[in-house]
Design a protein around this nucleic acid. Structure first.
Length: 271
DNA sequence: TTAATCACCTGAGGGC
DNA sequence: TGCCCTCAGGTGATTA
């Protein structure tokens, strides 16, 4: 599923083709995504130029002179640059036909994604204004997490997956970062020490940087029609490895539910 | 304010 | 082989 590294890779892949490009036409085949795609979207942006494209958390934003297009890939979404002659397949919900004879195609089998429009200040949008810092920014520190967590009884895994605390840490990276930090996913956030948060923040940053570095590979594998796990999956220590021996101590990795999410952990290494 | 749960949706995989 | 059921997962909305 697209997590922050996949969203970043998607953005870097489409950006050279869409920035400063005019949109000739928008074709909406399935408007029912997480929220309905605005009916008037074609009228709103046809003939208009995309000024800049950027990312905030897992949202991709396309700036126009008169507003912003907000895109989210949800659980299964992807965006690709294709030739305009490329026939649409099932789940190809939106095409943005560009003046350079390319098209930007939004595909999302599970339809948890979103394509929204706002003419207002994008940073004050309801979906963005409460978001926490980017995990790779300097402002995301151990002290920041430690201070926020002092009165929080929620499990540490739930805490670091909360977008209001920090954006872009999904189930895969939360599982991996906690494994590498030797922190049990059910520990109350308030119980985690500053020293442990220092390790955790360091591991979150390391694993995200690593994933972004090989994100292209991850994304290609993710888009395979057979859905088979790819190169990045091989790099994981815990996620998806329940029942396997722990890479650190050979104890069998266990799986529990934390906030309705599967969480693999080592009962011996993670305390 | 916080925490827990529900809802959305489809494909994969297992059991029969 | 085909049907049915369960699970997976990001995140806003709702409820406690």
């Amino acid at each position: 599923m697209p997590e922050l590294p996949e969203v970043e890779t998607t953005l870097q892949g489409i950006k050279p083709h869409i920035d400063q490009q005019e949109i000739k036409k928008v074709i909406i085949r399935q408007p029912k995504l997480r929220w309905p795609i605005p009916r008037q979207l074609n009228t709103l942006i046809s003939g208009k130029i995309i000024g800049n494209s950027w990312r905030r958390g897992k949202y991709i934003i396309l700036d126009f002179a008169h507003g912003h297009l907000l895109l989210h890939l949800g659980m299964s979404g992807k965006m690709r640059i294709l030739e305009t002659s490329e026939p649409a397949q099932k789940h190809d919900h939106v095409d943005f036909i560009l003046a350079n004879n390319k098209l930007l195609r939004f595909t999302d089998p599970r339809r948890f994604g979103a394509v929204l429009w706002t003419a207002d200040n994008i940073n004050q949008h309801d979906l963005l204004k409460h978001l926490g810092p980017e995990p790779l920014e300097k402002s995301f520190t151990a002290n920041y997490l430690y201070d926020l967590s002092r009165n929080r009884s929620a499990a540490i895994k739930t805490f670091i997956m909360d977008g209001k605390i920090v954006v872009g840490v999904g189930n895969i990276y939360a599982t991996e970062a906690l494994f590498l930090s030797h922190i049990h996913p059910l520990r109350p956030a308030s119980d985690v020490t500053l020293k442990e948060y220092q390790t955790l923040v360091s591991e979150i940053k390391k694993i995200l940087r690593k994933a972004i570095k090989i994100g292209g590979t991850t994304l290609r594998d993710f888009t395979k029609s057979d859905g088979s796990p790819g190169y990045f999956y091989q790099q994981l220590n815990a996620y998806g490895k329940a029942g396997h021996p722990c890479p650190g101590c050979d104890e069998t990795l266990d799986v529990i539910k934390v906030g309705q999410r599967s969480s693999v952990f080592c009962p011996k290494c993670q305390r």
